[in-house]
Computed example of a mutant assay.
Amino acid sequence: MNLALMYFSTGSCFLLSFLLFFHPLKQNSKANRWLAFFVFLMGSSFLGISFREATGHLILFLNAIQFLMAPSLLLATLYFVNPTKTLTPKDGLHFLPFLFYVFIECFLFSSDGSLIRQKLFSIGYADFLVRDLLPVQLLLYIGLSYLALVRHQKNLRLITASVKEINLDWLRYFLLILALVLIFWLNDALIGMSFMLKVMPIVYAISAFFLAYFSIRQRTIFAFDKKKLQDISELFGTPQNDDSKRSTRLEKNEIAILSEQLDRLMTNEKIFLDNELSLPILAEKLKISIHDASYLINEVTGNNFYNYINSKRVEEAKRLLLSDKSEELNMLGIAFASGFNSKTTFNTAFKKWTGLSPTQYQKQNNQR
C-alpha cells in the first residue's frame, strides 16, 4: 500500500472538512457542518486503513467513529433538501450501531485485539469481519441519500422554474464517487484482487480531490427568509399527486378571482420574464400564502410551478423566434429575453413543449 497517497487522502479530507465547517460563503450552514463531519470521518477511516494492524486507544477510537459515517452523510443530505430540518428523536436511531459497537467494545469484549477485526461468518474463502459491516452500512445510506435527492428535485419544481443551480446534482456526483470508493473498500475487505489493491490509494486520492471540487462549488438552495422557508417546508410535506390526501385550500369563488389575477400577471405584466421568479415571489404578488399559490396553479393549470412558468416562457420564445427580433438576437439572447437563465434550460424546455429544438422550430415555420 502506498502510505504517502493514503496520508495525502487523509490530509485532503481533514482540510475539506475544515473548509465545509467554516464555509466562507456561509451557504447551507447546517448541512455543510454535517457534511464536514462525514468528510472528517472519511479521513479518519483512511487513517485507520494506514494503521490497520496497529493497536492502542487511538485505533480503537478510529474504529468506533467509523460507524458514524453513514448517518452523518444521510443527515447532511436531509439538511440540504429540507429548509427547516431539525434533529428529532427518530434521527437518533441512526446512531444506535455506533453506540452498540462502543458498548460491546468497552464493556463486553475482552479478547485480545479489537472487536472490529472479529469474524462474523464466512463467504466462500473470505471471512466477513465486523469491520465489513461499515461499507454495507454506508452503501445502504448512500441509497437513502440518493432517494432524498430524487424527492428534492421533484419538490424544487413546486417553487422555482430554474432548478439547474440548486438541484444538488453536485451531491449526486458526490454519492457516485463514494459508491466508487466503496467498490475498492469491499474488494479490500472480501475479494482481494491484487490490481485493485495496488490502485486503491490512487483512487482514494483522486476521490478526495473530486469530493472537494463538487462540494465547494455548491450554491445556496433556499435563499428565503424564515417564514417563507417554513411555508416551503410545509408545501414539500404535502402530497401533491394524491387528491384523497390533498385538502381543499381555496373556495371556488376564491379560485375564480385569483385565477383572473394570475392571468393578468402573466398576460399583461409578463412576470414570467423575470428569470428570478419563484413561487414565494408570485405568492406575494397574489397576496396569498406559498401553499395557496401552489394549490391555485395546480387547480387552474393542472401543472406545477416549474411546468407552468416554463410553458409561458416557451410561448414567448416561439413568438420571438418568428418576429423581427430574431434577426437582432442569437439563441442565447432569445433564451434570456424569454425569461430563461441558461441556454441548456431553454433548449430542454423548448423541446419538451414543442418536440423541436428552437433552431428547428424557427426553420420549419419560416419555410411556410
Score class of each variant (00 low, 15 high):
Lys285Thr: 04
Phe210Trp: 14
Asp242Phe: 10
Gly339Tyr: 04
Val300Ser: 01
Met42Gln: 02
Val150Ala: 05
Ile216Phe: 04
Lys226Thr: 08
Ser145Pro: 03
Ser357Met: 08
Gly43Ala: 10
Asn347Ile: 15
Phe46Trp: 11
Arg368Cys: 01
Ser29Trp: 09
Thr345Phe: 03
Tyr204His: 11
Ile166Ala: 13
Leu180Ala: 15
Thr238Gln: 11
Lys252His: 06
Ile206Gln: 10
Glu327Tyr: 00
Leu78Asn: 14
Leu190His: 00
Trp170Phe: 14
Val181Cys: 15
Arg117Trp: 07
Tyr125His: 11
Gly113Leu: 03
Gln118Tyr: 10
Tyr101Lys: 08
Ile232Val: 07
Ala212Gly: 04
Ile123Val: 10
Phe37Ser: 15
Thr248Arg: 03
Ser207Tyr: 13
Leu58Trp: 15
Leu273Ile: 09
Leu329Ala: 01
Ile49Met: 07
Glu315Ser: 12
Glu234Trp: 01
Ile255Met: 05
Pro280Cys: 08
Pro83Lys: 06
Pro24Cys: 04
Glu165Pro: 01
Asn167Phe: 00
Ile309His: 08
Phe40Ser: 13
Ser338Phe: 10
Ala189Trp: 00
Gln153Asp: 14
Lys351Val: 05
Ile309Thr: 03
Asn298Trp: 08
Thr301Pro: 02
Gln153Leu: 06
Ile183Ala: 07
Asn275Lys: 07
Phe80Gly: 03
Glu276Lys: 09
Tyr146Gly: 00
Gln261His: 10
His152Gly: 07
Leu186Trp: 02
Gly333Asn: 01
Asp132Cys: 13
Lys351His: 00
Leu74Glu: 13
Pro83Met: 06
Asp112Lys: 02
Lys198Thr: 11
Leu171Tyr: 12
Arg117Gly: 09
Phe67Asp: 11
Ser17Phe: 05
Ile232Ala: 13
Leu286Lys: 03
Lys85Arg: 15
Pro24Lys: 15
Arg368Trp: 14
Leu120His: 07
Phe8Gly: 05
Leu58Gln: 09
Ala161Asp: 08
Asn241Phe: 00
Asn307Gly: 04
Asp225Tyr: 06
Tyr213Glu: 03
Arg172Asp: 02
Ser311Phe: 07
Lys85Met: 11
Lys226Gln: 08
Leu158Pro: 07
Phe95His: 02
Ser247Ile: 06
Val39His: 05
Ile202Ser: 08
Thr348Asp: 09
Phe128Pro: 05
Leu186Ser: 12
Leu5Lys: 06
Arg319Glu: 11
Ser194Pro: 05
Leu235Cys: 07
Leu186Val: 14
Arg217Asp: 01
Lys351Glu: 15
Thr359Asn: 04
Tyr295Lys: 12
Ile116Gln: 14
Ile123Thr: 11
Leu197Ser: 09
Val102Gln: 03
Tyr79Cys: 09
Asn63Tyr: 05
Val163Gln: 13
Leu277Met: 11
Ser278Val: 11
Ala36Tyr: 00
Leu175Glu: 12
Asp112Thr: 02
Ile257Glu: 14
Val102Ala: 13
Phe210Met: 06
Ala205Arg: 00
Val102His: 03
Ser9Trp: 15
Tyr141Asp: 02
